[in-house]
Computed example of a mutant assay.
Amino acid sequence: MLNIAITTGEPAGIGPDITVAALLHLARQASPRYADVQWHVIGDAALLQARADAIGQGDFWRVASTALTIVERPLGAPVRAGVLDAANGPYVLDLLDAAIDGCQVGTADGVRYDAMVTAPVQKSTINDAGVPFTGHTEYLAERSRTPRVVMMLAGPQPAHDNAMLRVALATTHLPLREVPDAITPAVLDETLDIVQRDLRTRFGLTAPRILVTGLNPHAGESGHLGREELEVIEPAIARARARGIDARGPYPADTLFQPRLLADADCVLAMYHDQGLAPLKYGTFGHGVNITLGLPFVRTSVDHGTALDLAGTGRAEFGSMIEAIDTAIAMARHTVRS
């Protein structure tokens, strides 16, 4: 039996909606690949029922109940769809803490989660509650005492026969002016090691090939447009290859994301957030998955935000949540086998 935890995210956003819709969709499929999966939905049960009713999925509990456990966490304040309230900032973090503890040490009922899937959170709500919060990735690393993690997004590309695209990031949520200083030899060494290890142990890729972008336009153009490629990125790639990692580059980011170059690649390592994620999100058309590499447990998430204007309307797309769930299951199965 696989135990998959799902945190329902910002209560005023679409997290509860897409959790309900995705699990109901999977229950109606009755696919044998979910036969051994137990869902542990972490959140306020009354909120989930209210949102299920609001989006026309009031039979959620009846259809999905046989494989569904609600891990009750009470809201900090009543919720109106689309309206943020800082009083629910601690509630959102409580959901994450429950999932992290369940993955690392197990629950009070003796259940150990094999993976966690997270619905989107609103960073401003948590910060407004007085808790400094940069994002899921950083919080999970700090809470699990993991010295370095790597953000990866992945997804099928409908325009290219659903070929899988994976993009990892050397830096994550930083102002653009801070990025060059953050790309150090140690960061690149550790990032490439984590990407290599998790592609093998979580995805089952025996000899992953990693394509590395440059930082500057034209990958620095031999030092005429910046020296980071010559002084930091190229030496890091050489060191990685000496450690047995099939890393190649640096490639100009504006020409790397094309099928011809990506056909034999297992992952792209981009230098900063928008450099890698803009082409990925365009190419995967709302079916991308956010994956945190380097953690002692499997964590996936949707590739979008809280979409406050869609909460409770029934118009929120849940394709990314389906992909996040499927990816978590696949990674958990491989990890268990390993």
Rank of each mutant, 00 (worst) to 15 (best):
L2M: 06
L2T: 00
I4D: 09
I4A: 09
I14M: 04
L23S: 04
L24W: 03
A27C: 09
R28W: 04
P32L: 13
R33I: 11
R33A: 00
Y34A: 07
V37T: 10
V41K: 01
G43V: 05
D44H: 08
L47D: 01
L47V: 08
L48C: 00
A50S: 12
R51L: 06
D53Y: 06
D53F: 09
G56M: 01
W61C: 06
V63T: 14
A67I: 04
E72F: 02
G76T: 13
R80E: 05
A81E: 11
D85K: 05
A86E: 06
N88G: 10
G89H: 01
Y91L: 00
Y91A: 00
V92G: 02
L93V: 11
L93D: 01
D97T: 15
A98N: 02
C103Y: 14
Q104C: 04
V111M: 15
M116F: 07
V117E: 00
T118M: 11
T118F: 05
T125F: 05
T125H: 02
I126P: 02
A129L: 03
P132L: 06
F133I: 08
T134I: 11
G135M: 04
G135L: 12
E138W: 05
E142A: 09
R143H: 08
R143T: 08
P147H: 08
V150R: 00
M151N: 07
Q157R: 15
Q157F: 07
Q157T: 14
D161Y: 15
N162Y: 12
N162T: 00
A163H: 06
A168S: 11
L169W: 00
T172L: 06
T172Y: 00
T172G: 13
L176H: 11
R177Y: 04
R177V: 05
P180C: 05
A182D: 12
I183Y: 01
T184G: 04
A186F: 05
A186Q: 12
L188Q: 06
I194R: 07
Q196Y: 08
L199Y: 13
R200Q: 15
T201N: 15
T206R: 09
T206I: 13
I210D: 01
L211K: 11
V212W: 13
G214E: 01
G226L: 03
I233N: 13
I233A: 10
P235C: 09
A240Y: 15
A242F: 08
Y251E: 03
D254A: 02
T255S: 00
L261R: 09
A265V: 14
A265K: 03
V268T: 10
A270C: 13
A270E: 01
H273M: 11
H273V: 14
D274F: 12
G276S: 12
L277H: 14
K281D: 12
K281S: 10
H287C: 07
H287M: 14
V289K: 11
N290Y: 06
I291K: 08
G294S: 00
L295W: 10
V298Y: 02
V302L: 06
L308E: 01
A311D: 01
T313V: 11
R315P: 00
A316T: 12
A316W: 10
M321H: 06
A324T: 04
I325L: 07
T327W: 09
A328C: 09
A332Q: 06
H334E: 07
H334S: 10
